Amino acid sequence: MASPKKKSTLISHGIAAQNRKARFNYTIIETIEAGLVLKGAEVKSLRHGRATITEAYAGERDGELWLLNAYIPEYQGGVLSRFETKAPRKLLLHKKQMAHLLGAVSRDGVSLVPLDIHFNKRGVAKLTLGLGQGRKKEDKRHAIAERDWQRDKARLMRSKGKDF
């Protein structure tokens, strides 16, 4: 008797890693998509969806933008090439985009926050960067209250709809 085929857990396109706390801790002013310089084993590991970017940030080094402190675990598929899991990874942007982002960081005091790593329709790994302005504690409380109200409102609407 033949065993049933296992479903592949690989991500050919879609989100590979997401920073869910970013939109809570920052007010995202603008988003931009950047390419990533990765090794083959890093891409394979990303396709398994085990990367973490919650503590990651983007910064400038030698006039280029880099993704720092992003965790991409080593690929366990028998590949001999090893890589550092939290190595800085170069971001690929046009010069005008880079100048715009770096100018906003230095002038307006905003941060470059990685929002997610995803694969586009062609299967290329991309990073969504957000220009984020840090929220204060009271702003976070307001966001929590708003989210709770939206959830309660949806519950009320569902319960009212079932009565009719």
Results as ranks from 00 to 15, higher is better:
T9A: 09
E42A: 12
K95Y: 00
I11Y: 05
F83C: 02
V79Y: 06
S159E: 12
M98F: 12
K137L: 06
K39Y: 12
V110F: 04
I53E: 01
H100E: 04
L129V: 11
D148M: 15
L36K: 06
I11M: 06
H100N: 09
G77L: 01
S3Q: 13
V43L: 12
A41Q: 13
G78H: 01
R89Q: 03
I72G: 03
D152F: 12
H48W: 00
L127N: 05
D62I: 03
R61F: 07
V43E: 13
G130Y: 05
L115C: 08
D108A: 14
G77D: 06
A99Q: 14
A125R: 04
G59T: 13
G49N: 05
L38Q: 04
L80R: 15
S45W: 04
A56L: 07
A70F: 01
A2S: 15
R155D: 13
E55L: 11
E84V: 02
V105N: 00
N120A: 07
H13E: 14
E74Q: 12
G134Q: 15
H94K: 07
N120Y: 11
K126I: 10
G132V: 01
G161E: 13
K44C: 04
R23L: 07
N120F: 09
S111N: 00
Q18A: 05
L46K: 07
R50N: 15
N19F: 03
F24P: 02
G132C: 07
D139A: 15
V105Q: 00
H94R: 06
A34Q: 02
N25M: 11
H100G: 01
L93R: 04
L80F: 06
F24I: 08
G161D: 15
G78T: 11
L65S: 06
Y75W: 14
I28N: 02
V110E: 03
T52N: 15
G130F: 02
E33H: 10
L115I: 05
A145S: 12
K90I: 09
V113M: 10
R50I: 07
Y26H: 08
R20F: 09
K90C: 13
P4H: 05
G77W: 03
G59A: 11
Y71C: 02
A51I: 05
L67Y: 02
S45M: 08
A70C: 10
T85H: 11
G132I: 08
P88C: 10
R107A: 11
Q133C: 12
G40H: 07
M98S: 04
M157A: 14
V124M: 10
A56R: 08
K137V: 06
R82T: 14
G134T: 13
H13Y: 08
R23H: 09
P73G: 02
R23E: 10
S12I: 14
D152S: 08
G40C: 06
D148P: 01
